[in-house]
């Protein structure tokens, strides 16, 4: 079942890569990068999953279990979920920088076509 997640992550990544490689619109290239980033999130979360595990949350443990028992039991990997959080923040930062650069390019060159901003002038 979790194989679907891995396949989905791979498809998302390839879709993003395809967008970055084939589109010339700079905004679409940034969107492709975001797509690739989101595939990383999916991959991290899927890697954290264990068969029939619960979320690594110890609030309100189910009946007959204490928090420490739950912690020793079958839970998803919290470290990989932490990595996913980190990746999200870094993705936001990267996207923000890229978008501001794209807006500046659009203002200076009056175009979003990556082919037209190839000369290094001005």
């Amino acid at each position: 079942m979790i194989a679907v997640n891995y396949l989905g992550a791979a498809v998302l990544f390839c879709l993003g890569l395809y967008t970055v490689l084939t589109r010339r619109n700079l905004i679409k290239m940034v969107m492709g990068l975001s797509l690739m980033e989101s595939s990383t999130y999916l991959l991290f979360i899927s890697m954290a999953y264990r068969a029939r595990s619960t979320a690594p949350v110890l609030v309100n443990p189910p009946k007959g279990q204490s928090g420490t028992q739950l912690a020793a039991g079958n839970v998803a990997d919290p470290v990989l979920q932490n990595f996913c959080l980190t990746a999200i923040v870094i993705g936001v930062a990267v996207t923000a920088v890229f978008l501001s650069v794209v807006v500046r390019i659009a203002q200076h060159r009056r175009t979003l076509d990556a082919d037209e901003v190839r000369e290094l002038r001005g």
Binding site: A3, V57, L58, V59, G67, V75, P78, V79, L80
Partner: peptide
């Protein structure tokens, strides 16, 4: 990586799970 579905938690994760309640008094390991 699919093999990980049935693998045990890595030591880092296991340690984080066990440390959360007694040492940090946090019921949220993430």
């Amino acid at each position: 990586r699919l093999l990980r579905e049935h693998a045990g938690l890595p030591a880092v994760a296991r340690q984080a799970m066990e440390v959360a309640l007694p040492q940090w008094k946090l019921s949220e390991p993430v």
